[in-house]
Amino acid sequence: MRNIWTIAKREYKTFFASPAAYVVAGILYLILGVIFYINVAAAMTQQYVPDVQVVISPLVTLLIFATPAITMRLLAEEQRLGTMELLLTAPVRDWELVVGKWLGGFLFLLTVIAVTLLYPVVLNQLIDPGIDQGLMVSGYLGLILLTGSLVAIGVAISSLFSNQIAVFFATMGAFLLLWIIGMPTQLMGGTSGEVLRYLDLSEHFYSTFYIGMIDLRDLVYYLSLTALALFFGTVSVEMRRWR
């Protein structure tokens, strides 16, 4: 456990020294801010009350694109610097390394997400009688679980290459695939449709957390996806030794 924390802490600090992380976070806030402004302005002119979904909905999409940029360096950079040799010959278990990397990236993205809480607070001031807090809590909880899974997938893919650009595109591809894999189910029924729908990342978010529901099945889905990805990441690091 201590090793995980040591690795996560170093990783977390490194993000704050990395211009790329600031750029990614900056762009995310910029786009989120513009969308927020447009939504609130539209709501005012069209006489309806905006809810917290005007923040969460774009934030989810933005995270799909921002996460690969954050996770791409996690293990690939160690590979490139040669520090992987250092970590793999230190008394650290392979899974501790992978989980530590995941935790570092996850905590950084949680920090990024925490800053976006400003928008619900502002919105709360703007509208009467304030925002639907249940909607906000379930929305953000879903967001955090989703981010955990995304970072875990990112770490696993980052262990495969030493080229960060390759990692970025592979991760993005994996995210988009998982994000839309449930779409064909609108046309197909039966068991295969059910399976695809179950695999879909967005399905477990939009149909529950997003509309204010917390379902145990979705919790299990995200947590097991995270665990599975971290397991594959560990196997991949172990395989590296055998090569």
Binding site: S18, L81, G82, P91
Partner: peptide
């Protein structure tokens, strides 16, 4: 162990790096 390409983190200070390695070794 010191590998041939001495693996270091360029964005850390010497002290931070050694502290990190010391922490990894408890």
């Amino acid at each position: 162990y010191v590998p041939e390409t001495v693996p270091l983190y360029p964005d850390m200070t010497v002290w931070e790096y050694l502290k990190f390695m010391a922490d990894l070794r408890h």
